[in-house]
């Protein structure tokens, strides 16, 4: 049987970063991560295939974040997925952040430019280094759909990065 605390140590970073990337604010992430691990604690003994653990955990993160979003919507009509993203929140625009030279901000800007479905697949594949079958299982979509989304997401990401680099070069010349 899988041991809870070892599972926590192994997947804490993954759960936290996934929740943040799904739009949970810094102020709320503690609560959401706790909810996720309470579910894991309650259900861990039902996991039969340790290889599928990460996909299973990501599914829990998605559902928990979804519940969190719904509750937040009830509480406040101000909440929306994009608003919860730091790079889409009021304040400095992604362009302003990028001008500050932060690669993290540029990455965030390019990710924000992807559709939600593509972004999720792209993040899991490229940032979390999950295999496409793992992603398909985590998102509960057919394998071909996951492959297709990843292919389009990569193309969109590369195109957006290319446009950014072109603007940079143009700005550098002027």
């Amino acid at each position: 049987m899988l041991e809870f605390e070892a599972t926590y140590r192994k997947f804490f970073r993954f759960v936290w970063a996934s929740a943040r990337r799904l739009g949970v604010s810094e102020a709320d992430v503690d609560d959401v991560v706790q909810e996720v691990f309470l579910v894991i604690h309650a259900k861990l003994d039902t996991v039969r295939d340790p290889e599928s653990l990460r996909s299973w955990i990501y599914g829990i993160v998605r559902r928990t974040v979804s519940t969190h979003r719904r509750a937040a919507k009830v509480r406040s009509a101000r909440f929306s997925f994009l608003q919860a993203f730091p790079w889409a929140s009021p304040g400095p625009t992604p362009e302003q952040l990028t001008e500050q030279g932060s690669e993290a901000a540029l990455l965030a800007q390019l990710l924000a430019g992807l559709s939600e479905a593509k972004r999720e697949v792209f993040i899991l594949a490229e940032l979390e280094e999950m295999s496409v079958p793992e992603i398909a299982a985590a998102l509960e979509v057919p394998l071909n759909t996951a492959y297709s989304r990843l292919r389009h997401a990569r193309a969109d990401f590369e195109a957006a990065l290319g446009r950014h680099q072109a603007r940079e070069r143009k700005g550098g010349r002027s």
Partner: peptide, 11 residues
């Protein structure tokens, strides 16, 4: 770019 920025949301 991904390598540089991917840890920005790590705890």
């Amino acid at each position: 770019l991904i390598e540089s920025g991917k840890s920005s949301m790590d705890p």
